[in-house]
């Protein structure tokens, strides 16, 4: 009773969100789970087949290839798209002229405004061995022979990682900046009183104070890594497919192209379980709950 009186209003505030998630996330999720245990034909009866779909997926070597690709590419993206925006945000924060800061922030954000289809299309063009800008520079400035970046299996994963970082760094950077902005200015004042240099202020005040934001960003990035899809879908081609086809690409292929909705659904639940496990690890390691 006491609890209700003290926290009642909070539960009321939470209620619409919970209701929404129940209808638009959990109910479909349970339905999807059901599909993964069925021989899900498009029409007619859909008999239950136990764990057949799951074992089919587990015995598919393509699934395991996709798993390796996902972990390598996802891990790379997790690392780079955490570090790069952090460096940029700190660098932006040190810029003294407001106009430059404003413009830089704005321009760095532009790639995030574009969908992967557009970004992919632009980069396929820029990296083209025939007339792409990157190769033009290689040929004319460094006198190298043109290189077909997107058709070379050894480069493929790096390109996926770097392009994802490039596209999203302005966006994550904003999170860090917003975090920096809300740092209590008196902390800097105190540091300066102690004669701290800019570098020392950065190490002693900014970074520790950004801890919360860093945890959130890291957790959010973790949630995303197993679900990479659009980027690969746009940038892949048959010569690099074996190096870059990720788990969601696998489910797409199973579900939409092969029309095997049961196994596709089972594969998605593997992704879900894996994400769950990863998140638990990250939460434990970052002690997120104590934030």
């Amino acid at each position: 009773m006491k609890v209700l009186k003290r926290y009642g209003a909070l539960y009321v505030m939470m209620a619409p969100v919970i209701a929404y998630f129940l209808v638009f996330a959990y109910y479909p999720l349970v339905k999807g789970l059901q599909t993964s245990f069925q021989n899900y034909r498009l029409m007619g009866d859909r008999p239950y087949v136990g764990f057949t779909n799951y074992s089919d997926v587990l015995h598919d070597s393509t699934f395991w290839d996709a798993m390796v690709n996902t972990l390598v590419i996802g891990g790379g993206i997790l690392l780079f798209s955490f570090a790069a925006p952090l460096v940029i945000a700190l660098s932006l924060n040190e810029v003294l002229r407001t106009w430059y800061k404003k413009i830089a922030q704005m321009i760095l954000y532009v790639p995030h405004l574009l969908s992967w289809v557009v970004v992919g299309g632009i980069w396929i063009f820029l990296l083209s061995p025939d007339s792409g800008l990157v190769n033009m520079v290689l040929v004319h400035v460094f006198h190298r022979t043109p290189f077909n970046f997107l058709a070379d299996a050894s480069w493929a994963r790096w390109i996926m990682i770097l392009l994802a970082t490039w596209k999203e760094m302005g966006y994550t950077c904003i999170l860090f900046l917003a975090g920096i902005v809300s740092i209590n200015p008196s902390l800097y004042e105190a540091a300066r009183m102690d004669g701290a240099t800019r570098w020392q202020q950065l190490i002693r005040v900014t970074l520790p104070q950004l801890g919360n934001t860093m945890k959130v960003v890291f957790l959010l990035n973790t949630l995303g890594i197993l679900r990479i899809f659009d980027e690969v879908f746009v940038l892949r081609n048959p010569t690099i497919a074996t190096k870059v086809d990720v788990l969601m690409m696998y489910t797409f292929q199973k579900g939409i192209l092969d029309i095997k909705l049961g196994p596709a659904s089972a594969a998605s639940f593997f992704v879900l379980l894996l994400t769950l496990a990863l998140t638990l690890v990250v939460r434990r390691v970052t002690r997120f709950d104590e934030v």
């Binding site: 959990y26 998605s268 879900l272 998140t279």
Partner: peptide
């Protein structure tokens, strides 16, 4: 609080592709 937080976090892990058809039905 912890239960509700987990409740929210789980929704973030659901791959949209997995629930597309049920979502359409809803």
């Amino acid at each position: 609080r912890k239960i509700m937080l987990t409740f929210v976090l789980i929704t973030m892990m659901v791959p949209q592709e997995a629930i597309m058809i049920p979502l359409y039905v809803v």
